[in-house]
Design a protein around this nucleic acid. Structure first.
Lengths: 254, 254
DNA sequence: TTTGTCGATTCCGTTCACCGGAACGCCCCG
DNA sequence: CGGGGCGTTCCGGTGAACGGAATCGACAAA
C-alpha cells in the first residue's frame, strides 16, 4: 500500500468536480483530461462519465471527447435566478438595445462575484470580455458596483477586505475610495464604470428590485469610452431597470 | 425484511433523478416532494441535496424549498450546442427582431424533439407557448419541420413511426402528408407552420448549417396567423440563417 | 392544552456500489 | 519494433451510502 492515499470524496462530489472541469477555454475534454482535472482515477471517471452521457448531462463528440450536454442546460434553465429573471427582463432589454444599439447586460450576484445572465450585443457594439454564464469581480463593472452597493453589509465587508484586482490603471483598488463610490451609487440610483475593466469601454448600470425592494439584479449599458456622457445614458438604463422591477411578479409563496 | 425492495440505482443516477424532478411547472420543491419525485428515501435525498446545495447545483429558498442553482446554469452554459451557438447567432437574431418586432426563435434537435436555445420576444409580439430550455415535438413547429427535414434518415423514420400529436385541427398527423411537407421544406429551403401549434400563430423557419453543410439548428419567426403572407417573411429568416451559418467558425479540433 | 400530521434532521448497523491497481487493446510516432 | 498516451474491462477489498427508526419542530384540528 505504498501509493498516495487519495482523499476520500463522495460520488456526488466527484460528479460535480467532473462538471466543474469544463471551462469556457476548454469546453471539450478527453476522458484523461477530465479525470486529471477532477482528480479522479481513470476507471472511475470512465464509469461516471458513461452515466452522465447516458443521461445527457454530457455528450461525446465524434472524436470521443466529452462536452457539456444540452440536457443539463435544459434543467439548469429552470434556475429561477437565471431564466425566471431573464424571461421578465428580455422585452425591456430589447427596448434598451433598440434605442441605443449598444451592449446590454443583465447580471446577478453570486457570493463575492457576479454572473452574467443575459447579454444583447449587436454587430456594431463595442466588443466586451464578458460572456453569458461568465463570472466577474464585483468591484470593477457597472453591474458589479450596483450589486455590491446594495449587497448585505457582511458581503460588502468581505469584498472590501479582499485585494481588489486592477484590470486597468483606472480600476478602483483602494477600499476607502470604493466605499465612497458605493455610497454615491446608492445616492444616485445608478453606477458608472469608466475604463475600469478595459480602458476603451464605459458602462452605466441600474438596480433591479424584487417586490420587497431588495436589489436582486442589475442592468447595464456598455459603450465606447468616448461615445457619450454617462449622465445621458443613466435615465435610459434606470427606466429599463424600473420596468423590469415593476414586472417582477410577487409570486406568492404557495 | 418485509418491505418493497427498491431497485438499486447508482448514486449518480439518483443525483440526476433529483435534478430531473424540477420542471417548469414546479421549479421549487420541498425535500419530501423531491424525494418522492426522484423515488429516493428521505434520508438519502437529504444527504444528496445537502451536497448539491453545498456545491451550488441547488439552492434553498428562505422557506427551505429547493430550487435549481445558478452555479449549475453556469456550467451548463458551456454546452456547445447551447451557448456556443447562441453567441454566434445573437446579433443576427437581433437584426431579425429589429426588422420585424416579432418573436424570433432559435432551436436545435435533441433526439426526437427540439429544444429552444434562444428566444427574443418584444412586448408587442404574439404570445407563444414555448420557453427557452423547453422541448417540443418536431412535427408541428416551423423550426421542428426544418430540423426534421434535414435529420438523418433513421431519425425521420422514428419520428414518422410515432403517433403525431394533433395540437390543433391544422396539425399534420398523417405520415405521408408529413413526408411531402418535409420534401417541400428541403426543396424550398424554408418551412411554414400555419396554425399547427396554435391556430392564431404562424411560423416560418430556415436551417442553420455548420461548415460541413450539416443542418445543426433552425431560426424561426412567429407571427399572428393573419399578419402577413409567409412568403414575404421567408427571405428575412433565410438571410438570418445564412448569416449565422457563415459566421460559424470552423473551430479547428485542437 | 392535547392530539395528529407532515416535513426535516440525525443516528446506527448493515451491505453492496464504488473504488483503484493492473492488464489489455488500440493508435500514433519514433 | 518499442514506447507512450488513451480508452476500456476485470477483479477483489472496503468504506460510502443506504433505509429504518427515532427525534424535533411547525402547524392545524379537536
Amino acid at each position: 500500500m505504498g501509493g498516495v492515499v487519495r482523499e476520500a470524496r463522495s460520488v456526488t462530489a466527484k460528479v460535480l468536480a467532473m462538471l466543474e472541469a469544463f471551462t469556457p477555454a476548454t469546453p471539450e475534454l478527453t476522458l484523461s483530461e477530465l479525470a486529471r482535472r477532477a482528480d479522479i482515477s481513470l476507471p472511475t471517471a470512465h464509469r461516471r462519465a458513461a452515466e452522465l452521457v447516458d443521461w445527457g448531462a454530457l455528450e461525446r463528440g465524434a472524436d470521443g471527447r466529452y462536452r457539456v450536454g444540452l440536457r443539463l442546460w435544459e434543467v439548469a434553465s429552470l434556475a429561477p435566478r437565471g431564466l425566471g429573471l431573464r424571461d421578465v427582463a428580455m422585452p425591456f432589454l430589447e427596448d434598451l438595445y433598440e434605442v441605443t444599439h449598444e451592449n446590454v447586460q443583465l447580471a446577478v450576484r453570486e457570493g463575492l462575484e457576479l454572473v452574467f445572465v443575459e447579454r444583447i450585443a449587436g454587430r456594431h457594439a463595442v466588443p466586451v470580455l464578458t460572456r453569458v454564464g461568465g463570472r466577474f469581480a464585483l468591484h470593477a463593472t457597472g453591474v458589479g458596483l450596483v450589486l455590491l452597493a446594495h449587497a448585505p453589509a457582511e458581503v460588502q465587508e468581505q469584498a472590501l477586505a479582499t485585494p481588489l484586482h486592477a484590470y486597468t490603471a483606472k480600476t478602483i483598488t483602494d477600499p476607502d475610495r470604493l466605499r465612497e463610490v458605493l455610497a454615491a451609487v446608492r445616492r444616485n440610483g445608478y453606477s458608472v464604470s469608466d475604463g475600469q475593466v478595459t480602458l476603451d469601454a464605459l458602462s452605466v448600470a441600474a438596480p433591479i428590485r424584487d417586490p420587497r425592494q431588495d436589489v436582486i439584479a442589475a442592468v447595464s449599458l456598455v459603450v465606447r469610452a468616448d461615445t457619450a456622457a454617462p449622465i445621458t445614458l443613466a435615465p435610459l438604463v434606470q427606466a429599463a431597470a424600473r420596468g423590469i422591477s415593476r414586472t417582477l411578479a410577487p409570486r406568492p409563496a404557495g
